[in-house]
Design a protein around this nucleic acid. Structure first.
Lengths: 341, 341
DNA sequence: TCATGGAACTGGCACGTGCTAGTCGCTGTC
DNA sequence: GACAGCGACTAGCACGTGCCAGTTCCATGA
């Protein structure tokens, strides 16, 4: 298997010096139109592709944004998708590194640092503040946390306004006429406290009774949240009277709750309105059709790139916090409360 | 922002030559235990991480497997997750490149070739045979297609035995006593023809009537398949009599079908058994609980790595086809048919 | 006393590219 | 006719690492 052609090969093929080939391929001034044409043609003919390792070795500063993400998570792929065009627009390449069950965030960080990325974007990491701070201090490079972090002086934070999202959701339910709105709180969910604050603010402002069903247990991915929702539903069913609306800060929990209520003869939304958070795929299933709060993953990706580039290019070295607005998605799982006899 | 330390920095810090540092970090023989200890300690202290660009520049052959995947697809993340440990075990690193709405497979290929990957693993690409063949011929490097391809002399193929999976599913339904088993065929789905062949084989062998509802339309991701299933259900409901079982070669289609039937008063599985394919997340929802055929994404990832490594290391240059077995996952959407009056 | 040999360590080139500092030849100007 | 100026091109070093070919030192043996 022959090795891929280098600039020297192109130069020999065309009959010029290697430096001139470099000039042409970099679109730098100093070559005649005719030469440019011939070099480009040779590049196409020989199937040349620049050796990025050599290039980034020579270049002092790199033009790569390192992105750490967990393929198993559901919303992160959309963020990753948005990062590519946003980075390209600003002249940066993207280098992905996955964090999986068998591959820690630290390993992913180490790989990206090995590639001398200009900045690290960490999406939905399992790292807490101290972990991220350690990464930021070790890497000597701007770090952007996309997820649930809070403003700090070590790394940038991009998060969605979960509190305002929940607040808006409760407002909407109240406008429909609901006065008894229960909130299911999966205690250990990372973005939990923030979203709960939104509920508490709305309850206070609207002068509602307020009712929080707190569900303990460790945070894990996947179907766990469905169980949390089902358990919360059972708790509610044991009461003398159901609330007219239930909010869960997670779609999977809301779906578990919804189905458990239905199976126990509760009609949705006639008897009880149910709403979730995330606008996950299951919320959009026609059989579920769950009112939810949508985070804008595209905007989060773009914001992350903006934050990284801002600090890489030294315009503003202090880490910031970027809050991306959420939006309410009303579906058929919520409606005005029925008048109760 | 100071630049990251190099081997030369470590050497100066310890008071030895750069080459000795290189020796130690490569675990090559020729350094005393004491020196090793001091070098390693300095590396930790200064936060050294090897510059992979420089390393791969120097090394003739690279130890990177390039992986192209579409973050938006649902099963691919699991394959990607499996690739990491499989590659690590064989001494290879993984380099990811995403194929998105705004980023073509060709762009992804170009990036990975720029990194001089030793092989390319293309997961669930939108490229047809000619496209993949072009990639294989251009890249001068082994290419592995994970998806729906067929055996050929240009690139390796790793796919699951969709035909046998469907066949096994029909066998299972027949054993339950079903004789009228309808197959919903979303015509343009890439793995469609293969799976359909499985149905046809089973029908012939078991001497069933056979009934294929073919649904035209272009293949797109996401909720489209639900619509396909819903439309198929409407077609069936217009008939004088329903079959006792329906198989759809895609979970989303099966779910759309399932819910449309339920909404029209059909009881599942009492009146009709419904089964899907993929064992997707929605199939596992307690409210859906769909009998399905599971593809083993982990095994597909490992097989892809094996195929790539086999050809990189020149043991066997001819591309192969690897077929990964599927397995039946029985849930509550299927049961023995009710005796009809 | 001196060759032998191995362990521990160093010198130096190479990988493919970017970039600065040139060289060369031609044209226009006084 | 000397020389500045300019366009087109080239020489050569540097980036950080891997690895081959040494070199030094010290213990061993005859």
């Amino acid at each position: 298997m022959p090795r891929p052609p280098t600039m020297a090969d192109l130069a020999a093929h065309v009959g010029v010096s290697r430096q001139l080939v470099s000039l042409v391929l970099r679109d730098a001034p100093g070559a005649s139109d005719e030469t440019r044409r011939r070099v480009r043609e040779a590049a196409r003919e020989l199937g040349f592709s620049p050796h990025v390792a050599a290039r980034s070795l020579r270049r002092a500063r790199s033009k790569d944004l390192g992105v750490i993400f967990a393929p198993a998570h559901s919303t992160e792929p959309e963020i990753v998708e948005a990062i590519y065009p946003a980075a390209a627009e600003r002249g940066y390449d993207v280098m992905l590194s996955a964090q999986t069950a068998t591959r820690s965030t630290d390993q992913a960080v180490e790989e990206l640092l090995g590639h001398r990325c200009a900045a690290l974007i960490v999406i939905g990491s399992d790292l807490k503040h101290t972990g991220l701070r350690a990464v930021a201090e070790r890497s000597l490079v701007p770090v952007v946390d996309v997820g649930y972090g809070r403003r700090n002086q070590f790394y940038d934070v991009v998060r969605s306004s979960g509190d305002r999202g929940i607040e808006e959701l409760v407002d909407y339910l109240a406008e429909l006429g609901h006065r008894q709105i229960t909130y299911v709180d999966p205690a250990s969910m990372p973005p939990g406290p923030l979203r709960r604050r939104g509920y508490e603010r709305a309850v206070k402002r609207l002068e509602l009774a307020g009712d929080i069903v707190s569900m303990p247990g460790d945070y894990t991915e996947g179907n766990y949240f469905e169980e949390v929702g089902a358990a919360a539903a059972r708790t509610l069913l044991e009461r003398r009277e159901l609330p007219t609306a239930v909010v869960a800060p997670n779609d999977h929990a809301a779906v578990g709750l919804l189905h458990t209520l239905i199976r126990n003869g509760v009609r949705i939304p006639d008897d009880v309105s149910v709403a979730g958070f995330d606008d996950a795929l299951i919320a959009r299933l026609s059989s579920v059709d769950l009112t939810s709060v949508r985070q804008d993953p595209g905007l989060m990706g773009v914001s992350a790139v903006e934050a990284a580039v801002r600090r890489v290019e030294g315009q503003e070295m202090r880490p910031r916090e970027t809050v991306v607005e959420t939006s309410l998605v009303v579906r058929s799982s919520t409606a005005a409360p029925r008048k109760r006899g």
